[in-house]
Nucleic acid binder design. Structure first.
Lengths: 155, 155
DNA sequence: CCAATATTGTTGCAAATGAAATGATTACCG
DNA sequence: CGGTAATCATTTCATTTGCAACAATATTGG
């Protein structure tokens, strides 16, 4: 068993571990400190930068399914951070918008989250950082073009 | 301040999305096809390459807490893929070992998981792939050295 | 215009998950 | 030794999550 594939060197594992650790570090800010879930944080992030957004678009831009969007939005509304109106054009959809309180909270949290991320990234050499940025962007592009594993609907 | 930070360009978000998509693609193999959870898969991965391993070491090498290890190991035992004995030297610990069935299953799954990962990675240019490898390794090293990332048991 | 089908957000329920409590064992230290 | 503290796996309980059913609205095709 000389070259039994070692978990620590397995690329998918490394990617997952890095992402988990990174996410945990950031969640310590918006989660443990401000009581937001990861989904709530993402929705707030999107909504804080725009006037309003429909539920459909929200889901497409966050890789969250409709249930996650619905539940996270429900909680954000209970906290007074967003509003959910019924879209007049298509009454099945929701029109989400950030409240002033939501925007203020986001403006308060983002710098801290950003600082937490930078604290990790700044521990890397500039070259490594650039390599990571480049590689990650390319990976995301590659993932986009991968045939999605649809349930047995292969053709 | 003018440019509201866009979620899609936010590094932590990109990292999380890439890791999620990658993980989902792999889980389609060992999960939907073989009924293993991510934790079970990781434990099987580690145990398949070694004669036996204690529960403590298992947790340290997978970034899983002891509850996750305990539960995943329990299910792997129910499936007959591993054995859990009580460590003779310290009866609080468990000694996990892969059964022949477990090793056989792992040997069957790994190539498929590997192929699924390679399918994505091969969609990248060699340079981008190398950049990703380098950046990711550096990121993991940076995370290790971050203070207060987690209550670490210094060894 | 009407009925059939499709799409969307929400809810119900079972399984998974996380955090603290528990029980068993060992280490420490007088 | 003896007893207290520490460590480990497991259990317990409350919350969260994923999946399928559901109700409401829209679209399509006669």
């Amino acid at each position: 068993m000389t070259t039994t594939a070692r978990l620590e060197g397995f690329f998918p594992y490394k990617l997952a571990v890095a992402a988990e650790a990174f996410s945990r570090s950031l969640m310590a800010v918006y989660g443990r400190r401000y009581g937001l879930s990861r989904e709530e944080w993402r929705l707030l992030f999107l909504l804080a930068g725009v006037e309003e957004m429909t539920s459909l678009e929200l889901g497409q831009r966050t890789t969250l399914d409709k249930v996650q969007v619905s539940r996270a939005a429900q909680r954000l509304e209970e906290k007074g951070l967003i509003t959910r109106a019924i879209a007049p054009r298509d009454r099945r959809l929701r029109l989400y918008a950030c409240t002033e309180a939501g925007r203020a909270l986001f403006a308060e949290i983002l710098p801290q989250v950003d600082a937490s991320a930078e604290q990790i990234l700044q521990a890397m050499s500039p070259d490594d950082r650039e390599a990571l940025q480049r590689g990650l962007t390319a990976l995301l592009a590659a993932i986009e073009h991968i045939p999605e594993a649809e349930p047995d609907a292969a053709q």
